[in-house]
Computed example of a mutant assay.
Amino acid sequence: MTPENEISIRPLFATPLLVFTVVDHRRINAELSRLILERETSQPSYSDDEVVGWSSPHDLSMLEWAADPLELLLGQVTQVATCMTELSERSSLHARQPEWRVAELWANVQRKGGSNACHPHPGSFWSGVYYIDVGDVSQGANGGELQLYDPRGCLPRMLAPYLRYSVPELHDAGASVSFTPSAGQCLLFPGWLFHAVTRYTGNAPRISIAFNLDPIIHKGS
């Protein structure tokens, strides 16, 4: 029996996850894969307690040894960030959109047993990851998925683990959402969103690039 009252349902506090496929990604991925795997064999991994696997330094040094393919990739990334961001009403420039630049980026190579512990990217409005080669990652097999955690924490599940809201958009309240990537896909999400990579059990290398973006705000004359 349904109530006679008309019910207006407004799911609140949405968290953006932007997913897009990079144009000309096959050519970009072939070049980046070659450069990153060469770097993996010649340079020690950046020290990061969160990561099981190899990664390059978390700075802008990758722009020096992978400049050409990164230029094609990052131009599209910053264009999407600009399109999807606006200045708020608190700004005197609220009619304008900020542009974006890459503040830091790094390459990741995960082989069998690799993972990335749960973490945010403090200080960044947009953070992201680009998938060059997902190795043997597939839906429900071999791990390596990106886990995105409800920023409200586990409270909804802790209070009533046997209940959930009847609105499908709220079924993930208090949980994590698993995303299975494809090569050529890029994801942008808020830097404060906790995320992780599940333990990868495939044999082929899983190769990605992570990055943070900083805004460039042009003031009017």
Rank of each mutant, 00 (worst) to 15 (best):
R164Y: 00
E71D: 05
R90P: 05
S8Y: 15
S92K: 14
L87R: 15
S208A: 11
P69M: 03
S178M: 07
C186F: 01
V197Q: 04
T201S: 05
V23I: 14
D49M: 04
N108I: 05
R90S: 09
R26F: 10
A173T: 02
R27Q: 07
P161T: 04
P98N: 04
W126F: 11
E40V: 00
L87Q: 10
A160P: 01
A173E: 00
G144C: 07
G140V: 04
P44I: 01
V197K: 04
M62K: 08
P3T: 10
R10F: 14
E31V: 02
S8R: 15
F13K: 15
D172Y: 03
L17S: 04
T21Q: 14
E31H: 06
S45N: 02
Y162P: 01
D59T: 06
L37T: 13
Q139K: 10
H25A: 07
V102S: 01
L60Q: 09
E64T: 14
H171N: 09
S88N: 11
G191F: 00
G202V: 05
R96M: 02
T85P: 10
Q139G: 03
P151F: 10
Y165V: 13
P205N: 03
P122S: 00
D48L: 13
I7Y: 07
Y46V: 00
L93P: 06
V80C: 01
P69R: 08
I209H: 02
C118M: 13
L72V: 08
A66K: 02
G128F: 03
N116I: 10
A141P: 00
S42H: 05
I207W: 11
E6M: 13
Y130M: 13
S166A: 14
I132G: 10
T180C: 05
G75Q: 12
P151T: 11
A14S: 15
P69Y: 01
